[in-house]
Deep mutational scan, measured.
Amino acid sequence: MTYKLILNGKTLKGETTTEAVDAATAEKVFKQYANDNGVDGEWTYDDATKTFTVTE
């Protein structure tokens, strides 16, 4: 399945996607991606759209 991440960081905004077997796996990938890019904030997940959002 394809999962999407929306980044609403103070210095980085954008979107990315990943292929993962489940939401938990996608979340690990996205949290590492956000961490690597210096984005740390509040996370939400919408199962209907398979979209994670992180907002600083």
Rank of each mutant, 00 (worst) to 15 (best):
residue 18 T to P: 01
residue 49 T to R: 06
residue 48 A to W: 07
residue 47 D to L: 08
residue 40 D to G: 08
residue 38 G to H: 08
residue 47 D to M: 09
residue 23 A to I: 11
residue 24 A to T: 09
residue 37 N to H: 15
residue 20 A to R: 03
residue 41 G to K: 01
residue 37 N to V: 15
residue 13 K to F: 09
residue 52 F to L: 01
residue 32 Q to S: 08
residue 14 G to Q: 11
residue 6 I to P: 00
residue 27 E to K: 10
residue 39 V to W: 14
residue 11 T to H: 15
residue 27 E to R: 08
residue 27 E to S: 07
residue 10 K to T: 10
residue 48 A to Y: 12
residue 20 A to L: 03
residue 11 T to D: 13
residue 24 A to E: 11
residue 2 T to V: 13
residue 35 N to M: 15
residue 14 G to V: 15
residue 15 E to V: 15
residue 46 D to N: 11
residue 24 A to S: 12
residue 22 D to S: 07
residue 40 D to M: 14
residue 15 E to P: 04
residue 7 L to E: 01
residue 53 T to M: 09
residue 35 N to W: 14
residue 56 E to T: 08
residue 54 V to A: 03
residue 22 D to E: 04
residue 33 Y to A: 03
residue 46 D to V: 05
residue 24 A to D: 11
residue 45 Y to E: 00
residue 55 T to Y: 07
residue 22 D to F: 04
residue 46 D to Q: 05
residue 11 T to Y: 14
residue 19 E to P: 05
residue 31 K to A: 05
residue 6 I to K: 05
residue 4 K to L: 07
residue 36 D to E: 12
residue 22 D to V: 03
residue 38 G to E: 06
residue 31 K to R: 15
residue 45 Y to W: 04
residue 34 A to N: 02
residue 42 E to C: 11
residue 5 L to D: 01
residue 53 T to G: 03
residue 52 F to R: 00
residue 44 T to E: 10
residue 29 V to R: 10
residue 36 D to R: 09
residue 38 G to R: 07
residue 13 K to R: 11
residue 42 E to F: 12
residue 37 N to L: 15
residue 37 N to Q: 15
residue 30 F to I: 01
residue 28 K to W: 09
residue 45 Y to M: 02
residue 42 E to Q: 11
residue 36 D to L: 12
residue 31 K to E: 04
residue 17 T to M: 10
residue 19 E to Q: 14
residue 39 V to M: 07
residue 11 T to S: 14
residue 56 E to G: 05
residue 23 A to H: 11
residue 43 W to Q: 00
residue 2 T to P: 06
residue 41 G to I: 02
residue 17 T to V: 10
residue 21 V to R: 09
residue 32 Q to E: 10
residue 28 K to D: 06
residue 27 E to F: 15
residue 34 A to I: 06
residue 33 Y to F: 12
residue 29 V to E: 07
residue 52 F to D: 00
residue 36 D to A: 13
residue 45 Y to A: 01
residue 20 A to V: 05
residue 17 T to L: 09
residue 4 K to N: 06
residue 12 L to C: 13
residue 23 A to T: 07
residue 4 K to P: 01
residue 31 K to D: 02
residue 55 T to G: 05
residue 11 T to G: 10
residue 44 T to K: 08
residue 41 G to T: 02
residue 12 L to W: 14
residue 29 V to Q: 08
residue 29 V to N: 07
residue 4 K to C: 06
residue 23 A to W: 14
residue 48 A to C: 08
residue 38 G to N: 11
residue 29 V to S: 06
residue 11 T to I: 12
residue 36 D to M: 12
residue 12 L to F: 15
residue 5 L to E: 01
residue 41 G to Q: 02
residue 43 W to E: 00
residue 15 E to M: 13
residue 49 T to S: 09
residue 34 A to P: 00
residue 48 A to P: 07
residue 45 Y to P: 00
residue 30 F to Q: 00
residue 42 E to L: 10
residue 1 M to V: 14
residue 8 N to I: 13
residue 27 E to L: 14
residue 17 T to K: 08
residue 51 T to L: 05
residue 35 N to C: 10
residue 49 T to A: 08
residue 26 A to R: 00
residue 17 T to R: 09
residue 48 A to S: 12
residue 48 A to H: 10
residue 4 K to S: 06
residue 30 F to N: 00
residue 3 Y to S: 01
residue 35 N to Y: 15
residue 5 L to C: 08
residue 40 D to Y: 15
residue 14 G to M: 13
residue 9 G to T: 15
residue 38 G to W: 05
residue 13 K to L: 07
residue 2 T to C: 13
residue 38 G to Q: 08
residue 6 I to W: 04
residue 37 N to Y: 15
residue 17 T to D: 05
residue 30 F to W: 02
residue 38 G to P: 01
residue 29 V to M: 10
residue 17 T to Y: 14
residue 43 W to C: 02
residue 10 K to I: 15
residue 40 D to P: 04
residue 45 Y to Q: 01
residue 4 K to Y: 15
residue 36 D to P: 01
residue 5 L to F: 05
residue 16 T to M: 14
residue 48 A to E: 14
residue 31 K to L: 07
residue 8 N to P: 03
residue 16 T to Q: 11
residue 33 Y to L: 05
residue 49 T to D: 04
residue 55 T to M: 06
